[in-house]
Amino acid sequence: MVETMLQVSLTLFGVAIVIALYRIVFGPSLPDRVIALDMIGVNLITAIAIVSVILNTKAFLEVILILGVLAFISTIAFSKFIEKGGVIIERKRDD
């Protein structure tokens, strides 16, 4: 029963990732794609948690924290690039 529920939730998170992938491919602007990438990161974190429950192991708990940190850092870097034209050094955009 619990196994079936976990597999159903994994399938639903896969559906959510596919919907976010639609937004990445057809997103009209760059911030839409960045938000969709962040959403895929969060869904991957939950999928890793469910897989570690299914496999009955504690070895993936560091992966969850590391993936959350990497999604945060990459979203900050993308938004600084969109907003200020540079990731570390702020430089003038050419447009």
Binding site: A59, E62, I76, K80
Partner: peptide, 24 residues
């Protein structure tokens, strides 16, 4: 357990990179 010098070094450089992005 999972971990070690490589991942620890990458996490440390991630923290320093976050400081560089926020404070210039």
């Amino acid at each position: 357990s999972p971990g070690g010098g490589f991942v620890g070094g990458l996490m440390t450089s991630g923290a320093v990179l976050l400081l560089y992005m926020a404070y210039g």
